[in-house]
């Protein structure tokens, strides 16, 4: 066994004392990470553009220009990204798509994060029969046809964009829960946890104060993987007619439309795909930065 014998009591105590400075510290570290800072700026710009979309282009997002159907970028008429198969301005549509995609990405991931981390940590920490039962439930959820789940939600509650967040989040938390549980299993045997337990600290407190901060690394990495997954799944749901309805759109929808005509009208694929890629890269670098900044062992 190659383990330091630092007093678990001392470690636990330290974390209590430094409760606030942990986050301050993390922030300083995050802002020292250049890639993360650049990414935040880029994401910020995209978000601001999405919010200000109506003011950035002379074209409404749903206006059909009969004379300019499926045309390449055209500066004379202010179609900077060209037009789509219905003659609508692609620039403003890409920005409107950003609204939906960013919201879906962030909200659904947050839902999955909250459910998944709590669930996984509890299962892993409590262990035994409870763990077994909770994980079997995850198995059941994994095997249930996700699409029927979504369809049912739509049928029962009607069409609503927020339902997409819930549905997606409610499906994506499963893997998160498994990862957190796995990490918890190994963390909970660590001396400082066992010491805290022996010291009479309540289980809830141990889970939220000690376990979760210690498993945050892989969680954040997986979170940055969930965002693209959610954004792309949304496009699949929309494709089935259960997601955003025309004339609203999302990046996923724009990209799948563009992919169909990639040879004839490459701009229809290029611009939305570029926005998606840049966003995903940015999330990814921020995730890495956050992970490094929050790493308890690195402090």
């Amino acid at each position: 066994m190659i383990h330091t014998t630092a007093s678990a009591d001392a470690m636990a105590g330290m974390e209590e004392l430094e409760g606030r400075s942990l986050w301050q510290d993390a922030r300083i570290r995050l802002f020292r990470n250049k890639a993360a800072v650049v990414s935040m700026v880029v994401l910020g710009i995209i978000a601001v553009m999405a919010v200000l979309a109506p003011y950035l282009s002379p074209h409404p997002y749903d206006e059909v220009y009969w004379e300019r159907i499926q045309m390449g970028p055209d500066f004379e008429n202010a179609h900077w990204f060209g037009t789509d198969g219905n003659g609508r301005d692609l620039f403003v549509r890409t920005l409107y798509g950003a609204r939906v995609s960013l919201m879906v990405g962030i909200l659904a991931t947050t839902v999955s994060l909250i459910i998944g981390v709590t669930y996984g940590a509890v299962a892993g920490y409590v262990g035994g029969r409870v763990d077994n039962l909770m994980m079997r439930f995850v198995d059941v959820m994994y095997s249930l046809p996700f699409m029927f789940f979504v369809i049912l939600l739509m049928v029962i509650f009607g069409r609503n964009i927020f339902l997409i967040f819930i549905a997606l989040g409610a499906v994506e938390w499963l893997t998160m829960a498994r990862i957190v549980r796995g990490q918890t299993l190994s963390v909970k045997r660590k001396e400082f946890i066992e010491a805290a337990h022996a010291g009479g600290v309540s289980s809830v407190k141990i889970i939220f104060r000690h376990i979760i901060p210690n498993v945050l690394g892989p969680v954040i990495v997986y979170m940055t993987l969930t965002i693209p997954q959610v954004i792309l799944t949304e496009s699949f749901i929309s494709f089935l007619g259960l997601g955003v309805q025309e004339p609203l759109t999302s990046w996923g929808v724009l990209i799948s439309e563009g992919a169909r005509v990639m040879e004839q009208s490459p701009w229809m694929l290029m611009f939305p795909a570029l926005f998606l890629a840049v966003t995903l890269f940015a999330f990814n670098f921020i995730g890495d930065g956050l992970r490094d900044a929050l790493d308890p062992k690195d402090r």
Binding site: E63, V64, G85, N86, R88, P247
Partner: peptide, 10 residues
């Protein structure tokens, strides 16, 4: 169907 519906709605 989608493109026609968009056009007709317009």
């Amino acid at each position: 169907h989608k493109r026609i519906a968009i056009a007709v709605a317009a």
